[in-house]
Simulated scan of single mutants.
Amino acid sequence: MSFATTMLRVDPRPLPHIDRAALAECIEACIECAATATACAEACLSEPDLPELTECIRASLDCADVAATTARVLARHPAYDANLRRALLAACRVAAALSAEECERHAERHNHCRVCADACRRCEAACQSLLDV
């Protein structure tokens, strides 16, 4: 069981209109995406074809920042401002999609980009799931 799931289970406050399992999944996906995208950007910096990876690095770093912020805000009580939560989820979904698209362009040559694209797609889907509620 993840820490996000455990914390959401023991939080005494009600979570109206939010599935705790989906919320925990999204928090975990955002955290994983942020760490993976940061690591991918760092790995890209060590590649011999660095000039070709500039946009990938930018997209990964943007995604990492947005995903980390989204995870932190979602980990707070998520019912406090639905408009802010939805805006962050939408932004994170877009950032994850952009990073995944860019990493997918390089995935055949760079395994770290393949791993990053997978983490970004998971984050994108988790954000969309919460937006659909």
Rank of each mutant, 00 (worst) to 15 (best):
D81W: 06
R86G: 01
H77K: 03
P12C: 05
P78V: 12
L98I: 02
E104W: 06
C30A: 14
H77P: 02
T69F: 11
H77I: 00
R72E: 14
Q128E: 15
C123W: 05
R58C: 02
V66H: 10
A95E: 06
C56A: 14
A21G: 05
A91H: 10
E101C: 09
R109L: 12
L98V: 07
N111M: 08
A107F: 01
A22S: 11
R122L: 12
D118N: 07
V115W: 10
E124P: 03
P48R: 07
P16H: 08
S129E: 10
A68V: 08
D65Q: 15
R58K: 11
C127N: 12
R72V: 11
A29T: 01
L45R: 06
D11A: 13
L50F: 11
R9N: 15
A41L: 12
A41N: 07
S46Y: 07
M7N: 08
E101H: 12
D11P: 03
C120N: 15
A117C: 08
I57Q: 09
R93E: 15
C103E: 09
R13A: 13
C120G: 09
H110I: 14
A97P: 00
P48S: 10
A82L: 11
E102W: 00
C63K: 08
A22D: 08
L74Q: 02
I31F: 03
A82Y: 01
A37T: 15
H110Y: 15
D65Y: 05
A75Q: 12
V10G: 00
R76H: 11
A24F: 03
C33K: 09
P16V: 08
P51C: 08
S99F: 02
T36I: 09
C113K: 06
D118H: 09
A79H: 02
L84P: 00
C26G: 00
I18R: 05
A125F: 03
E42M: 13
R76G: 13
E52D: 14
L15M: 14
C120K: 07
C113A: 12
T69N: 09
P14C: 03
D62N: 13
A91Y: 05
R85P: 01
A125N: 11
A29K: 01
E104Y: 01
H106R: 15
A22W: 01
S99N: 11
R85L: 15
S46D: 14
M7S: 04
P12I: 08
R20E: 12
V94E: 14
H17F: 02
A67W: 03
V94T: 13
C123P: 01
C127L: 11
L15T: 02
L23N: 01
C56W: 00
A126I: 10
D132W: 00
R72M: 15
D65P: 00
V73C: 04
T69I: 13
